[in-house]
Nucleic acid binder design. Structure first.
Lengths: 216, 216, 216, 216
DNA sequence: GAGTAAACGAGACGGTACGTCCTGTCTTGAT
DNA sequence: ATCAAGACAGGACGTACCGTCTCGTTTACTC
């Protein structure tokens, strides 16, 4: 006697069209230029249809980003420090990928004084992505590769923070050399004291030696 | 023979009222809730009067923040690593100070896809503040206290990034223990190899060589 | 070999519920506040079910009114002028009856620039009701009681017009004295020249020759 | 020290454009097809500008009609009954004038279940127009030309009611013959008993004599 | 009885209009 | 020339209904 879902079911084609339109507009007009009206128009959809699914522009954006940015797989190479480098490299890649990085950060920034958006963002976007990182860190701690006197979250901050901060400040990511140097430095900060000698970095040892240069 | 400005001079009282109103509204409604209309109303000022001074909402916000958040003085304790810790502690303080931290980050986030805002922000807000940091780092490198194979900017990212990232993600700052642990870890990442052992924590006697310079 | 209607027959319960809901809403929200959506909701019915029966809101309203306002019976007292007074009194009664009068006039007004509504209104509502009046007038003309140099429609206008106009202007009907005076005046306008002196007022003994017919 | 009106004064050009657009749209789309959005668009005006002046579609319509339909002048021929005929003829003219008649009636109808509209209509439209009629009637009563045992309002109902009722029912006005006949009949209803013999009607005596014909 | 065709409730759909809010510009009279 | 005030064109907001369209379910005729 179970009644099936009543009423006309929502069209998946509409879902798809709206999400696509959102991505297009984010890329072309940026987060602040995104308009429900424009999304609806571009998707060939009535405005109320968008509101039916996403009560807020932010809900829409978070949802779309969650779907558009793939969650990184756990590399699990046996060396947690190397795993972290791989993941960080993945984050860098995503931050430069077509328009997505700026948008994520813009939403992050916008979320700061909008608790609703923040929690939705945390739940739908951040949790799954940071979860992988936490697992790797925990594994590294257990394996004696990562210091056990740092909270998992602190390690996470040390690994991703510098990288994201650069984007936040300048809108651009590290270049190859900066990345290599920074990651090696972070390794020093979080590696367990008695751990094996630092494995050769992902892209060979940088033996740079020049003084600080331009101030951005 | 220089003719003085003709016509009625701009009222400094208006400047003051508008800036105050902006701060109030930022605190109460957040960045996204800030409206030129509301600012003008609260300041008891005509809307065009606001526009006459600041062409956009963002210009206003950046200007107000620049004035409201004091530039930190260079501690110059002789130990660049300790100086960095002091500065980082100062940044943390400012991030939790009444409503200002979230706003700065929200503006940073919003600036990402608005180049005009970004450059104004860099010019008026970031440059003077990050300048102090750069000086300290450069000094530390010269003194053999900070590794010389890292760009100044990378060091800056390593010092401030983790701290800011935490705020960005969670809206909150490190607690005392997290802060101590994280800073010690960062020290490992950036200290020059042969440098002295980690000095006692910041809470010890400052022993500064010269007094802090002018705020603002 | 005529095949009866196939499939599930329309539910008369639905008809009833929708009509009742319409009357309720007309009374509580007026004509302009009447919404198909609200009607369907109040009737506990799907919106398409309403549309299946009545293509437009106006069709629905006209239909409901036609059923709700009973057609007046022909008094047929032998005195056509008195018959007209009785009918006019009936119209007055109906105009003040719970919420129906205003609605009828609102629909009349709305019909003026909507020919479809107008014709449906004429066909379903007005014709049967004005038909009785026409019969009485025609009978009066034949009996030499009503002037024969006036069109039936003009007489009708003279009898009902003043009465309806008052409602249209003020939303209220004549009081007892106004009614008596006005009707007496109208009698002067339409009575055949040689007719008997004005009979005693309506409240006297009816003395009808045949009973009132079906009230539909 | 009286401060003159502050702020930018409202543009009379806007008033004019909006009123013109309203009339155009009333003529082309009718009352029910009138849309604030369309009015604003046609007037080349922002929607809020319309709302600033007229909070409601109905306020707008009433205002526009008040201005568009000229108040009739008091004929004051010395013969109040003739004056009334002239005024009634004027009303007839206005009712057939380009699109205005239907609109007035539609608004009248719509006003019935919207007290706000009704009072605004009464105040701005009806009062000045019916005022002239009242004056003529009062004068006629004083001069012994109109019966003094009828309220002024009842006389008004008797004069205008039949005429308006016909429009309400059929959307059309009396033709020449109907008008002549009806007005002569009304004269019988309201003329004082001892008054001078009925002056020759405005367009000569109709000596019609045919039975009632087509319905409606 | 077993099919089956239509009606049913529910509710999604593309739209249109609503009335509000804010933007950035402009036009006043007054200072 | 600046000020407070406020009107202006424009545009997006989020809501309410419109009339149409699927859905899965129910129901009464027909075979």
């Amino acid at each position: 006697m179970a009644t099936g879902r009543r009423g006309r079911p929502r069209s998946t084609a509409v879902d798809w069209a709206v999400e696509q339109a959102t991505l297009d507009l984010l890329a072309s007009a940026g987060y602040h230029g995104l308009t429900i009206e424009a999304v609806a128009a571009r998707a060939g959809v009535g405005r109320p249809t968008v509101y039916r699914r996403w009560p807020t522009k932010d809900d829409l954006v978070v949802d779309v980003l969650s779907r558009a940015v793939p969650v990184m797989a756990d590399p699990d190479t046996g060396d947690a420090l190397r795993d972290l480098e791989v993941l960080a490299a993945g984050v860098l890649e995503r931050l430069v990928a077509a328009g997505v990085g700026p948008v994520v950060l813009a939403v992050l920034g916008a979320a700061i004084d909008r608790p609703e958006l923040a929690s939705r963002l945390a739940e739908r976007y951040l949790s799954p992505r940071l979860g992988v990182l936490s697992e790797v860190i925990t594994r590294g701690v257990r394996a004696g590769q990562i210091r056990d006197d740092l909270d998992v979250e602190v390690v996470r901050d040390l690994v991703l923070g510098p990288l994201v901060y650069r984007v936040l400040l300048t809108g651009r990511v590290w270049n190859r050399e900066e990345r290599t140097a920074a990651m090696a430095a972070v390794r020093l900060a979080i590696a367990a004291p008695g751990a094996a000698a630092p494995a050769p970095p992902v892209t060979g040892p940088p033996r740079r030696r020049r003084p600080a240069s331009s101030p951005s």
